[in-house]
Design a binder for these strands. Sequence first.
DNA 1: TCAATTGATAAGTTAAATTAATAGATATAC
DNA 2: GTATATCTATTAATTTAACTTATCAATTGA
Lengths: 301, 301
Amino acid sequence: MTLIELKFVLAVAQERNFRRAAEKCFVTQPALSLGIKKLEEELGVSLFERNRNEVTPTTIGEQIIAQANIVLEQAGKIKEMAKQGNDPLNGTFKLGIIHSVGPYLLPEMIPPLVKMAPHMPLEVEENITATLEQQLRNGVIDAAVVALPFDVPGVETIPLYDEDFNVVVPVNHPWAHRKTVSPDELSNEKVLLLNTGHCFSNQVTQACPELNRKGEVLQGNSLETIRNMVASNLGITVLPAMATAARYQNPLLQVIPFTKPAPSRRIALAWRKSFVRTAAIEVLEKVMSDIGKQQTTLTIG
Amino acid sequence: MTLIELKFVLAVAQERNFRRAAEKCFVTQPALSLGIKKLEEELGVSLFERNRNEVTPTTIGEQIIAQANIVLEQAGKIKEMAKQGNDPLNGTFKLGIIHSVGPYLLPEMIPPLVKMAPHMPLEVEENITATLEQQLRNGVIDAAVVALPFDVPGVETIPLYDEDFNVVVPVNHPWAHRKTVSPDELSNEKVLLLNTGHCFSNQVTQACPELNRKGEVLQGNSLETIRNMVASNLGITVLPAMATAARYQNPLLQVIPFTKPAPSRRIALAWRKSFVRTAAIEVLEKVMSDIGKQQTTLTIG
DNA sequence: TCAATTGATAAGTTAAATTAATAGATATAC
DNA sequence: GTATATCTATTAATTTAACTTATCAATTGA
């Protein structure tokens, strides 16, 4: 049974004439006759009664014609779906993002993204790097926003932007009026950080080796919780540049840059090499790197 | 797009591996790869993301896989329908029958027919020969029970049984105690007949030439109406043997055979030569000729 | 680094579909 | 009744496509 054979059947049913049906199908009459015959033999039933005057469907033929209509209709939907869906910028995009980037990058990037790809809604999965890596490889997400290095077999990355780290202290802290702070100095302070599963904590402890084993580890997933704790005089912390952008200003907090060269991290977009919606990747890369570069240069000194 | 290609797609979707999918489809891996590729090119979309580790459907791929499932399911129904319907003795049989036979043959034939073909319900159309001929040619009915001659192009006939004509008179009629009546004698009587559209009337007037233009023509379609009118002393009539069988006995009526050779008619089954359910024809022929021969020999003399 | 596994590719072969030409059957016209 | 026209079936030849075998390139895991 072939879709073409079913088309032949429908044409004969409509035209009630093999020759005209063949014309309609753009084949010669014998081709159509043989097609119908082949189907009839395969099914073991006569579909049409051939007369000189008229070709008439048999009882079972009528039923099968009706069903053939349904089959071709449903098959046509596949083509429709393909036509609609062959735009890489059409259809949900599943994006993973680390906790220390999501809350700051996403709100900014959504408007320009909607402008560039109006038919590509984002489904965002905020998680830690290790989980994102797994989800990326499994195809649970299409791409991930992570901090480099991110060396995963079969996964490609492109840097989006670099962001410096900044020290954040309560306004009544002794450092509150300092212009810069050296990474080494943090070893004497109570530094609040996310737990070690979060890459940002690792990056900070890597940048401030003295801090190792002294940083206060929290179980939450949110830098905002830490920011609020700092505002409550429970310690100090380190935040990435984008989390200290102008609009996150807080009268209870003071942001202090590190002495140059400031520790920083490189945020990148990662996707499977085999992922086919490359146009979607390109759009995301453009939008996010624009936002990232813009936001990290507007940091309050 | 081919049903086989859709099967390939489903196999890959299930197995998530081209090689295993190919085995499942009883083809080699390149055949399956090419099939998928061909479909992808036709549709203009990637259906699967090929990794070393795993083959994963794309977003649009998942939609199309779901739809392919529907298509194959519906296509499978065609095969089921064919399997169920490939029995010629399965499915409604549309039978036409003339008014002067239907009421007497049908009640008798249904029980043995149900026994021989339990899954072939009859849809009976009782009408005059001219209409039946048209309906037979148009395929409105599958076969017709008519009186010979019935020469219609493209239509085949087989005789079922012969039935003599009998004279029917009221019990108080002068002929009531006669053993036989000659056709010529009817010319002096008031003979009630159906109108000329009915073949039986024609057959009677043909058998009794003197009767021409003297028979009382009625507009009804029922011999039973005439029988009742005869019982009411409105005239006499002629009925076919099967209508005078034992069970139609009436104390107000007397049935008298014609003198030999009695006028008679030959009842036959007619069907389009192109009609494919020949087994159904054979069953009907067997059942009806059996009943016909049995009933016409049980006629009251 | 090496063997193993996966999907893609190329060439050759087999199978299938299609066409062109014709036959057979039936109805319509004269 | 014969002839003509029309319709589907059939046959043989050709073209098309589908499939197989063998091989490649890429990747993975030991």
